[in-house]
Write a protein that binds this DNA or RNA. Structure first.
Lengths: 158, 158
DNA sequence: AATGAAACAGTATCGAA
DNA sequence: TTCGATACTGTTTCATT
């Protein structure tokens, strides 16, 4: 993982449909070498998958909510129970007051209520609290440090 | 947007490197027709972009935190100020106690502290509260209702 | 809006440096 | 690890239904 790899990751995040020849031109590598780099990044699991980013509104997912879940017991192995609820986009175990933080998308507040009902049915769950998002400023891919603006104020650099 | 489109979206989310011929075979369409469908989904903005999903740990982003931000004034136009902080992966205006909810990734807790400092420097921000994620059960693409049979009625189904 | 075929472009591979 | 060349595979276009 050198700077060339990080640059490639940033370019691919922005647009994974570009050709290897094109990407290579931008970072100063041949198409073959670029291809080999990307192949290795995939093999190493740095690139987990190539996917499409979909507009939630286009599939009628107009409601976005963050749900904190409290539990009576340890919920460290309830991952699959949350994963079974398809409306849950992310599930994280968090430190602090709540045990789990969920990102949930539904077509309506009624559907959200139904999701909350199913969450309560999971063993150990004692309570939930939902916070509705009114507007999303932005959602972007995991930062890479590839070629991002650099304001120079940060303590660490790489 | 019919069921064929939704099926295509689900397949592309799972693996956008598959060929049109291959995708078409699975949903019962020729390569040409599949290509045309996907082209239209892109043109309509349903598919916002094709991207790669990167393992955060591979780029040393070992700290994930959700930060709630309180403000004294209306922050409806501070989107760009948050976007300028590259460590912020998502920013949403939320209803409830906090004004904005952020998803932040950093290489260390020290770097997180620095991000919080920069957030405080944004006009109108009065306080922040960070919640650290200890473990991520899963993070997946926006659900599409693609594979699950789904006729648009009723709260939801699996 | 879909098909099948043809022309074109990009990918994947390989020997050499 | 890279490059450059090549064979191959997939994409893109188009006339047709």
């Amino acid at each position: 993982m050198d700077d060339v790899d990080r640059g490639l990751l940033a370019l691919l995040q922005a647009d994974a449909t570009r050709t290897y020849a094109d990407l290579g031109r931008e970072i100063g590598l041949s198409a073959g070498a670029t291809h080999e780099r990307v192949r290795k990044l995939r093999a190493a699991g740095v690139i987990r998958r190539t996917t499409v980013d979909i507009d939630p509104a286009a599939v009628d997912l107009d409601v976005l909510a963050f749900v904190t879940v409290d539990s009576v017991a340890w919920i460290g192995d309830s991952g699959p129970a949350f994963a079974a609820i398809t409306e849950i986009q992310e599930a994280h175990v968090v430190a602090g007051a709540a045990s789990v933080l969920l990102k949930v998308r539904t077509t309506s507040t009624g559907a959200l209520q139904d999701v909350l009902r199913r969450i309560h049915a999971i063993a150990g769950v004692s309570s939930t609290q939902a916070t509705i998002a009114l507007d999303t400023f932005f959602e972007r891919p995991t930062p890479t440090g590839g070629t991002p603006a650099h304001d120079g104020t940060g303590p660490d650099e790489r």
